[in-house]
Simulated assay, not measured.
Amino acid sequence: MAVRLIMLIEQRLSKSLSPKELLKHQTVAELAAHIRSTENRPVAEPSDRRALTA
């Protein structure tokens, strides 16, 4: 479920997010604030995404 959420965030918001970051920010408000604070951070390359689903 976490990997699915990370992929949705990457697809819809064009933001890269690691599983560690997702677990660190345990509320929607904390996660939203974190995502906003990383405005210039690029999305992971497709090869990186495959590693998350393995």
Rank of each mutant, 00 (worst) to 15 (best):
I35W: 05
A51F: 13
L13T: 01
N40L: 15
I35V: 15
V3H: 11
A51W: 12
V3G: 03
Q11K: 15
L17P: 00
S14A: 09
A29P: 00
Q26K: 14
R50M: 12
A44L: 13
I6K: 02
H25D: 03
R12Y: 06
L8I: 06
T27K: 04
P46V: 05
L52G: 06
M7A: 11
S18R: 07
K24A: 14
Q11T: 11
S16Q: 07
E45W: 06
T27S: 15
A32I: 05
H25K: 04
I9G: 02
I35Y: 04
R41P: 00
S37I: 02
A54I: 11
I35E: 01
R49N: 08
S14Q: 13
R4A: 12
K15T: 02
H34E: 01
D48E: 15
K24R: 14
A54S: 13
R12Q: 05
K20Q: 12
E30F: 01
P42N: 07
E10F: 01
V43H: 05
A44V: 10
S16A: 15
L5N: 09
I9Y: 02
R41E: 09
A51G: 06
L23S: 07
A32V: 08
A29W: 07
S14W: 06
T38W: 02
A32C: 07
D48M: 13
M1R: 13
K24I: 02
D48L: 09
T27C: 06
A44P: 04
E39I: 08
L23N: 05
A33D: 14
E30D: 11
A32L: 08
K24Y: 10
P19G: 09
A29S: 14
